[in-house]
């Protein structure tokens, strides 16, 4: 999947071709993948979910890219959250059982930053999903018309190039 194709997917979706809920789900799922450090089974599982679920992949990858950068800012919070959960006496039995299973430890759930970010990603899923839906409806209602009326966009529309671009999008 090329980055150009992903960009095209996002543009198509934003220009009315995509289902808003797919876009929002892609955004929220991408955020979860972006936050979790890579190189473990947990990140791979999120990656596979993009293919498995009916979410907008373009938006999902775009969001993953943005949230990978934001992950650095959440690092300290994620570490503290992960450490608190991993040190919690009440959860010790659960972690010990999971740690002893095959495959599961490869998710690196026992790493403070991985667990912290995974929890953050899951906690943020619903707010990001509904927040994105709301932002999208706001964009459609208030911003979209103004953006399309911008001289630059109009000028772009005047070019043959834009027609070609529209054909390419279609």
């Amino acid at each position: 999947m090329s980055p150009l194709r992903l960009f095209k997917d996002v543009l198509l979706a934003l220009h009315g071709g995509g289902e808003p809920r797919h876009l929002a789900a892609g955004f929220a799922l991408g955020a979860a993948l972006g936050l979790v450090p890579k190189g473990n089974l947990c990140a791979a599982a999120f990656f596979l979910l993009f293919f498995l679920l009916n979410v907008d992949k373009g938006m999902a990858f775009l969001s993953a890219g943005v949230f990978t950068g934001l992950g650095y800012a959440f690092d300290s919070v994620a570490h503290k959250l992960g450490l608190t959960l991993l040190r919690a006496e009440a959860l010790r039995g659960l972690w010990t059982a999971l740690y002893d299973l095959p495959i599961i430890p490869l998710t690196r759930f026992n790493n403070t930053v991985v667990l912290g970010n995974l929890i953050l990603g899951l906690l943020l899923y619903a707010p990001l999903y509904f927040g994105f839906l709301k932002a999208l409806s706001y964009y459609d209602a208030r911003v979209r018309a103004r953006v399309e009326a911008m001289p630059l966009i109009k000028a772009l529309k005047g070019f043959d190039l834009f027609e070609n671009y529209k054909r390419w999008l279609a």
């Binding site: 450090p37 994620a78 002893d100 403070t112």
Partner: peptide, 19 residues
């Protein structure tokens, strides 16, 4: 240690749960 030093960015800290 129950309160280990802060690890490097994005590296986290691996906590073992051995039987």
């Amino acid at each position: 240690s129950s309160f280990p030093a802060r690890p490097a960015r994005r590296k986290g800290l691996d906590i073992e749960f051995p039987r």
